[in-house]
Design a protein around this nucleic acid. Structure first.
Lengths: 199, 199
DNA sequence: GATTCAATTCGATATATATCGAATTATTTC
DNA sequence: GAAATAATTCGATATATATCGAATTGAATC
């Protein structure tokens, strides 16, 4: 079941009378006229609901004379339910979401056109984003002297030393003696690839 | 999960952006501000969606300074999904539906105030309801002569013989020699108790 | 204590849709 | 072929709600 199908199916399910229709059809098939009587609704209303359910594949109609006999399509319902059961399937609901959007918004707020920082945010989440951006100025595997580190950081902010200290404190820049090096992997897990808003 | 909870939960699920929120929270917890950036929505809109999801128990908030960090409540989601999986649970959605409503409507249409039939419907479903009503004039276990049967049926319609023949043809009235008797069980299955609109 | 900030609440608006009655269609019966 | 019947479609209306911006609240920082 793909995402837009799931949404349509859930919208079809999210109605009091349509749930009652499904409850009735779970017992036995019914014609429109009968459902209308059982639910105390007009036939046109029931027909509308059934069309909605049929569009989602939750019920199907079979012609019998001028009756339409509707039956429950249990398989569709169960595959919808299965989609909601596992976290892996849920994650796909946000598949097309650009996970860098928050980071880009924060950087847009604190980074001037010349690439320098207008200020350092104090809020932990935003601060983490900014320092992750600083880290991106260092190549993995390359070794830097303290002077080189500060030169690079000075491109972002005149007072480089506190930036360097915080990068080390965060564990993102490793120091051995007088040699600095970017750590290879910041964090195990799913948020390493796209969003750096870790706290 | 009871019925009204299920409806509220399904309504909470039946929205594009709320599904995307759940997809994101399936990966990791997020603050409102972050979700708003990722989904390109105002914070007030996201807050509204989260309140709706939280009301259904699908997410929960934890205060962290002036941040509200929301996380997915997987258990609620899975118990909702479980409700949709089995036909037995589905039938409960129509629990409070009066299954005799259709039969009563049909009888109201064809039965006059004095209990006599104004006419015999030709449509199979309605005809079945009327004949089921005729059958109810006979006690289970009791034996009737053909004359007695026709006397009883004449209370509904002057031309009793065709009614008797059709009751026998439907297998609802059993005849052995010249003795008639109501069959004990019309039909195995769930519709015997309430609705006789069988065809 | 004043200011800043994230979240929530509130009011307004636009869109979706649940429901009905009337008109139409398809099928059966007379 | 004409009348009756169930279902569907259509038009109208009322309700629900998704979204935003503004105002408010609660908490952290200076």
């Amino acid at each position: 079941m793909d995402d837009s199908n799931l949404l349509e199916t859930l919208k079809a399910l999210a109605d009091h009378n349509r749930l009652r229709i499904l409850g009735l059809l779970a017992r036995q098939p019914y014609a429109v006229e009968q459902l209308a009587a059982l639910l105390d609704l007009r036939a046109s209303t029931v027909s509308h609901h059934l069309a909605r359910l049929a569009h989602a594949g939750l019920v199907s109609a079979q012609a019998d004379g001028y009756y339409s006999v509707y039956r429950l399509e249990l398989d569709t319902l169960q595959s919808t339910a299965q989609t909601l059961l596992t976290p892996e399937n849920l994650e796909q609901l946000a598949e097309e979401v650009d996970l860098t959007a928050y980071d880009r918004r924060v950087l847009g707020e604190y980074l001037r056109d010349d690439g320098k920082l207008s200020e350092i945010p104090t809020q932990p989440r935003k601060r983490a984003v900014v320092f992750r951006h600083l880290l991106d100025a260092f190549k993995p595997g390359q070794q830097y002297s303290e002077t080189q580190v500060d030169e690079i950081l000075a491109r972002f902010h005149p007072d480089a030393a506190p930036l360097r200290l915080e990068l080390v404190r965060r564990g993102w820049l490793a120091r051995e003696g007088s040699i600095y090096q970017r750590v290879q992997e910041l964090r195990r897990g799913r948020d390493q690839s796209a969003s750096w808003s870790v706290w």
